[in-house]
């Protein structure tokens, strides 16, 4: 056991973002949709791509690549939207995240998960729950509630994402568009 709170075998949904493998706790994933038209909402930071109609409900969609300081998602046949259930300010809401492609569902034992490294990743260490290791490949396990906390969503901290990363600084500015 290497990470507090992870004591038993967990299932994770692995997906690709800019050639890296990320994963989410399967308990938080509601479903995976094919790419669909996204309605842009004015005055929102760039990573908030807009809203979609999910069987009569309105669900916001974020572009994690923007959030993590990567170039914006280019639409392809593999592009999909992962619908997640997460808790913002104590309220459970649905949020969609764009992914380049979805790979598989992984089983990870607690000992296959290591704490997040202080260095060497492109995103805030706070967003990372741990590093999974499977077949000599590193998988970044996201702490999705943190990624989508209210502050993060409103774009207050998004620009700081780059400052925390030691590796590179993508020339991406997504400061909030306030008037």
């Amino acid at each position: 056991m290497t990470i507090e709170g992870i004591t038993q075998t967990g299932q994770y949904l692995a997906f690709m973002l800019d050639q890296e493998v990320y994963a989410l706790d399967i308990m938080q994933v509601r479903e995976v949709l094919d790419y669909t038209e996204i309605t842009k909402v004015p005055r929102m930071p760039n990573f908030m791509r807009g809203v979609i109609n999910l069987r009569g409900g309105v669900v916001p969609v974020v572009d994690l690549r923007f959030k993590f300081g990567m170039p914006a998602t280019e639409k392809s046949v593999n592009t999909c939207i992962i619908i997640m259930e997460n808790t913002i300010d104590g309220e459970t809401t649905l949020i969609g995240a764009l992914a380049d492609s979805v790979r598989e569902v992984l089983d990870l034992e607690p000992d296959q998960i290591e704490p997040a490294p202080k260095l060497g990743t492109r995103l805030k260490t706070g967003f990372i729950k741990g590093m999974g290791k499977k077949n000599d490949e590193f998988i970044i396990l996201l702490d999705i509630d943190r990624v989508f906390s209210a502050d993060e969503l409103s774009g207050v901290n998004s620009a700081e994402a780059h400052l925390d990363t030691e590796m590179e600084a993508v020339g991406e500015t997504d400061a909030p568009l306030s008037s």
Binding site: E37, T39, V41, P42, R43, M44, P45, M48, G50, V51, I52, N53, G56, G57, V58, P60, V62, I88, D89, E91, T93, I95, F148, A150, L153, S154, G155, P176, S178
Partner: peptide, 27 residues
Amino acid sequence: IKKMGNAFNNAPDISGATILGNGAVAL
């Protein structure tokens, strides 16, 4: 009216959304 939720606190002039007959979302 569908609530847009906390994610859109930054768009105060959008009070909600609705689904149109063609399935599109209108703000």
